[in-house]
Design a protein around this nucleic acid. Sequence first.
DNA 1: GTACGAACTAGAGCCGCCTCTAGGTCAAGA
DNA 2: TCTTGACCTAGAGGCGGCTCTAGTTCGTAC
Lengths: 129, 129
Amino acid sequence: MGMSIGEVAEHTGLSVHALRFYEKEGILAHEVHRGPGGRRVYTQQDVDWLRMCIMLRMSGMPVPEIRRYTELVRQGDGNELQRLDILKEHQDRVREQMARLQECLDLITYKVGKYQDYVNSIASRAVGQ
Amino acid sequence: MGMSIGEVAEHTGLSVHALRFYEKEGILAHEVHRGPGGRRVYTQQDVDWLRMCIMLRMSGMPVPEIRRYTELVRQGDGNELQRLDILKEHQDRVREQMARLQECLDLITYKVGKYQDYVNSIASRAVGQ
DNA sequence: GTACGAACTAGAGCCGCCTCTAGGTCAAGA
DNA sequence: TCTTGACCTAGAGGCGGCTCTAGTTCGTAC
């Protein structure tokens, strides 16, 4: 049932270094259980939580803010409004980021089109057309 | 016609520090002209180029790759295929990034919905409903 | 019994991208 | 004349997020 840090690394794509780092940074919802020899034993819950943290990181949430969120979850019931606030704020930021990326993509696509046309015209001239 | 570094900073949103940094990093398509006292005088072309660089940076292109692209442009005609390659590769990366962000957004939106429901249910219970 | 592999801790190091500092020049206004 | 403020250079510093090192401790396999 329990997974070693190496297995979790493989499953999540994080490095074992990163896993220990995240733990030290306090972004695990529950303390990781330790097996014989003081080795970490992760539950499926831990891994699920990590997957969410990965999503939050991937979408640009800074580690300290993930920690804030994690702490609220650790505190238990009663602070759902604060958790909601954090998530909503982040949601807005992600939407903004996507809009900005779309703008960039539009520009890049425009330029790619221009260069493609140019390169094509050169190529067709080269075959005598 | 020419703009000072401060004006360019204001127009582009970059800091004067960043502008000098970009120049040192070699990501300006043409050498910036200098006015009396060795002060930089930017043309509209410079600013347009900077705007494109900002787009590339915003969308995650690393400074060294912008430099490579810039160098190709500086070299002049004949390397359009290489420029096209860089842009296409970056285009792919931006699309991937957007897809990943969309996944994150979906998860966050799902969680926001759950918390919103919960918070609403608490609120309506509080007014005796 | 020794070699290997995987884990452990604490803390240093690295990378990318700026940002800031120190020490200076210059022009215009009070 | 003196101050102010925008600019200059070179180089140091800072921040976020890991990543790596050093030095151990285990448990299992040869």
